[in-house]
Amino acid sequence: MKHIWLFLKGLAMGAADVVPGVSGGTIAFITGIYTELLDSIKSINLNALKILFRDGVPAFWKAINGTFLLTLLSGILIALITLARGIHYLLLNHPIWVWSFFFGLIVASCWHIGKEIPRWRWQELAALAAGAIIAAWISVASPTQIEATPMIVFLAGSVAICAMILPGISGSFILLLMGLYEPILGAVKALDLGIMGLFAVGAGLGLMLFSRLLSWLLHHYQSVMFALLTGFMAGSLVKVWPWKETLLTRINSKGVEVPFIQSNILPDSATTAVLALLLAGAGLGLVLLLEKVAKDD
């Protein structure tokens, strides 16, 4: 049963990572597996290889927490492959409903992480403000267009994965800012193994390096890091505000006109606002459910 719940958490992380503005790291945090995830990734090192050659596969698998990583990664990959098309369709055709749900989810996540901080000192408050400012700035930054060459795809994987494991900073949105969201998502939907492979190698390298830094910070400066991560998520609310006005459009790889630069506006009708509130409430409820599941594990 434990592994089934872990697989479902991976599915939720993968689904969140598809949406530009939402991070799979947020899901990992509210489900109580964030620190274990970072520590498990960090354990894949030269010492683990020594254990493999000296003591065999079972000892190596245990040293890297292999069952945990494989189960979680399976859920993430299946979500990316199976849900990418559906979420992409909803974002294009029903964006207010998608953003409303995730807005509620992120608000609840801020509360969830914030209450884990035992004492709010000036250090925590400064970290909270810094995280909110950085995430908000990233959220309103103007996208660019970069050609998806092999080297760029590799580097994009390294950068995006760092954002994907940070609650509140979306790897998908980083790709959008770089002008690479459409090519990468298209490669996933088309199962283009060349682009997917290059992106995966870059992501693996970035993950190995960045997870070590994050793990060390969480173990040595937990309260400050929790405050910083809460700030990241609070700042990302600028991006996931449901009502937007499109200032500039672009033509995607299929020849369809899609939003490129948008600004936040007020709700355009009471009916829309009420339904958006209900969906935001559903996102909040999901966080409470995930929190309960994490406590029961």
Rank of each mutant, 00 (worst) to 15 (best):
A79P: 05
L214Q: 00
M208V: 15
I161P: 01
T271R: 15
G86L: 12
T144G: 15
W61C: 14
I44M: 04
A203K: 03
L83N: 10
K239L: 09
P58L: 02
I78E: 07
R54M: 02
L290H: 05
L213Q: 04
V201M: 00
A141M: 11
L69S: 10
S211Q: 07
A160S: 15
N93V: 07
K295F: 05
R54N: 02
L185Y: 01
V57D: 05
A270S: 12
L286N: 08
I174P: 08
D17T: 07
G86E: 10
V22K: 08
L155G: 06
K42E: 14
G10A: 06
L175N: 01
G206W: 03
L92V: 04
I138G: 00
L198S: 00
A16R: 03
A148G: 02
W216K: 13
S74M: 14
L38P: 00
M151Y: 04
L290R: 00
D39Q: 12
V107P: 07
F101S: 07
W137T: 06
S158T: 08
N47Q: 13
G168W: 09
F29V: 04
S100E: 01
I81C: 07
A108C: 12
Q145D: 13
A12C: 08
E182T: 12
T71M: 03
L288N: 02
W97N: 11
F103W: 08
A130N: 10
F154G: 03
W243T: 03
L180V: 06
Q145M: 11
F60E: 14
E291Q: 13
I106N: 03
S158H: 07
L217N: 02
W241S: 12
M1I: 01
G168E: 09
I44N: 02
W216D: 08
T31A: 06
F68Y: 08
N93M: 02
F7N: 00
L205H: 09
L52R: 10
V240H: 08
G25I: 01
K62N: 07
L286K: 08
I152R: 13
L175R: 02
A187L: 03
M151E: 06
I87C: 14
T271Y: 11
N264V: 08
L228E: 03
I64H: 03
R85F: 15
N93H: 14
C162V: 05
A273T: 15
A294E: 01
A163P: 09
